[in-house]
C-alpha cells in the first residue's frame, strides 16, 4: 500500500504496524517519535497500531539546533 512518509509517497507492506514500518525502514525506535495522521503515536502502541492505505506518517528525531 502507499502512505505519505515524511512528506513523500512511499510504498510499504499492507497493514504494517508502526513498529513494523520502523523495522522496514531500519530505524531504531528509541530515539524517534511518530505521528500518524497528525496524531502522536504513543510508543507502547507501536506494535499494535496498524497503518492504512493513504495514511500520513511523520517520523522525527533530534538533530542539531540551538
Amino acid at each position: 500500500m502507499t502512505i505519505t512518509l515524511n512528506g513523500e509517497k512511499k510504498s510499504v507492506p499492507d497493514a504494517v504496524t508502526v513498529l513494523g514500518l520502523l523495522e522496514f525502514l531500519k530505524i531504531q525506535q528509541q530515539r524517534v517519535a511518530v505521528e500518524l495522521n497528525m496524531e502522536i503515536v504513543k510508543k507502547d502502541t507501536y506494535p499494535t497500531t496498524a497503518l492504512k492505505d493513504g495514511d500520513s506518517v511523520e517520523i522525527v528525531s533530534f538533530m542539531g539546533g540551538g
Binding site: 515524511n6 525502514l25 530505524i27 517520523i59 528525531s61 533530534f62 538533530m63 542539531g64 539546533g65
Partner: peptide, 9 residues
C-alpha cells in the same frame, strides 16, 4: 539543545 526534525529515510 537539539532541534526536532524529520528522520532522513
Amino acid at each position: 539543545t537539539v532541534s526536532v526534525r524529520r528522520v532522513n529515510i
